[in-house]
Design a protein around this nucleic acid. Structure first.
Lengths: 342, 342
DNA sequence: CTGAAAGCGCTTACAG
DNA sequence: CTGAAAGCGCTTACAG
């Protein structure tokens, strides 16, 4: 653990000069610069970020606040963010709230809010130049103060705060496209297994779905919508409800708002001796690993997680560099993955 | 961003007293302690870790070095570690090497080694009390110096360094149990789809498998072993090889060293009009999400990722507290998950 | 182009 | 029980 002081002694210069070289200041002669750089390499000296951050104003680091690392979406989101940050020569420091384990996935809990607020303070003390908040799932995030001294970007969720840009998936268009696809395959008797009625995803997707049907002059009011609680069992139950409703005709396609519920629909169909993709078309959402292992492989919408991460970081750098951004709410398009379930 | 100085002024005490209170020193009168604590709460003061870590010797923080956050195993490992750390009142600071994206998963690359070494320096500058290294997959890790001033623990991989404890899955026993299970189900013509011949996993598992067969007086030399490169396509290919080998009889069970390869074996069986679990028993490994969505649901071995994380952190705290540990290489047992594929 | 000095927000002996 | 002072390893005006 060699310090600037020792390094300076070794190089025969002052610590100020070392610092200037390390920070790319232009006021150092090429000669001493090279000499110092060489000795730095020899000694393996690494500056102590702790110390420099305490003093510096620009730290070239972004703070990451992570709702929960174990959310299936989080690692890829973070990876996309790191991609851009590293390219920009920025470091990253991350804090994991562990909302699943510690707060039962309830951001409205007081302990969660307190933790979040204390973590924001920490990050500011760290002199981060910006904060990216990474939600475990799409929701309205409400507890980030608007008057923070650094820019904030929310990834994978939404916020009403006008000063906080958000980067999300484009639920509306994803559902719109899905409906179009189904129609193009001659499916007209449609049903939807949603996540939860209160979910933002559900609302946006239903809008997109409805608009596509409208354009094709199909009566949207006839499509059955049953929420499936985002899990396999819920998908099973919803599928059961849809198929055993004797008041309306059996649908020829079911759009499930995630792959897990689609798998639940598969379960029910198989149980009834029906074959997904043959007797009834099924479409999923997320393109989780599971989807291509289902039988038949599930046609689904891929969420561009890494891309969302990248975009969030890009918006952050625009803000940091004071570029004009009219990007309050960026929507990243999903990618349709056609497999065998339609 | 109120500081000790302002806080001290507000409380009418010195900054030293504030510090003593915050660090639980016993040399402060109960009265002033309560008064200060109250004002801390009112003002929402949070100490600046940056500054305190620069000065303090005991920082109550553990450094985490993560091979790659996007490895399927990493989030749960980290979650287990955090569990124990938070219980112990320790914070955590993590660095993501991104070995997949940046070094093509090749730890032998020089850039990887340099990055690792610089990150270790950073963590030491951070005054972490210990470092936990979290591998993306099981391998021998070679580039952690033995003479670090703080204890190091390696999770999910192995190292020869005598001073570095490792926490891994118990491959030997997992395979031993699997073989026993297969035998108990009357399966005697066995085959194995391994990962890679050079893999530590393969070696240990084959040992366990062999010992179980020996005990049952079954000739191990007759079991076909084909490496499947850990992925679905490889599993498919390996299964094909096994079933089209005309020199030996068709096996009645195939043990695949991960779930993905088991899925590949499923693929091949279906292609040949055979039904996994009925015509040929298949067993997987990992208990990835995929396994319970396969048709039929895959019998497999669950890797106790969170538990490995917990154990690694526990060993770390033993080391930090100078407790005797004879735990050079801890093996955490896997959990057998019986489903429908045997 | 170079260096002496002040200071970032804390902790740690030490003196009282 | 309390506080003044030194110092952690840097960066930042500022003077030369």
């Amino acid at each position: 653990m060699i310090t600037v002081k020792e390094l300076a002694a070794r190089c025969g210069v002052s610590i100020a000069t070392i610092s200037n070289i390390l920070n790319g200041k232009s006021n150092v002669s090429e000669e001493t610069k090279q000499r110092v750089l060489k000795i730095i390499k020899e000694t393996g000296y690494t500056p102590n970020y702790m110390a420099s951050r305490l003093r510096a104003t620009k730290t070239k680091t972004i703070g990451l606040i992570i709702d929960d690392l174990t959310a299936f979406s989080t690692p890829s989101l973070v990876d996309g963010i790191l991609d851009i940050c590293e390219n920009a020569g920025y470091k990253t420091v991350s804090e994991n709230l562990r909302i699943y384990t510690k707060y039962e996935n309830q951001p409205e809990k007081n302990e969660y809010k307190e933790n979040l607020s204390s973590i924001i303070s920490q990050l500011l003390a760290y002199k981060v130049e910006g904060i990216i908040f990474i939600a475990a799932n799409s929701r309205e995030v409400t507890d980030i103060p608007e008057n923070l001294p650094v820019p904030v970007v929310v990834a994978y969720a939404y916020t009403k705060a006008a000063s906080i840009p958000t980067v999300e998936i484009d639920d509306y268009n994803a559902a719109y496209e899905t409906a179009k696809y189904l129609l193009s395959k001659g499916k007209t008797k449609l049903a939807v297994i949603g996540g939860a009625e209160t979910s933002i995803h559900d609302k946006k997707r239903i809008e997109g779905f409805e608009d596509a049907l409208d354009e094709a002059d199909i009566d949207f009011s006839k499509v059955k919508y049953i929420p499936g609680n985002w899990d396999r069992q819920g998908g099973y139950n919803a599928c059961k409800k849809i198929l055993s409703d004797s008041n309306s005709e059996t649908p020829d396609a079911i759009f499930c708002f995630n792959d897990l519920m689609a798998a639940g629909a598969y379960d029910y169909l198989y149980e009834k001796g029906k074959i997904p993709g043959k007797d009834i078309a099924i479409i999923g959402f997320d393109n989780r690993e599971v989807s291509e292992y289902l039988n038949p492989p599930l046609t689904t919408m891929e969420i561009p997680l890494k891309e969302i991460g990248r975009k969030a970081a890009e918006v952050m750098f625009k803000k940091i560099n004071n570029q004009k951004t009219d990007c309050k709410a960026i929507k990243v398009p999903c990618t349709f993955i056609e497999r065998k379930s339609v």
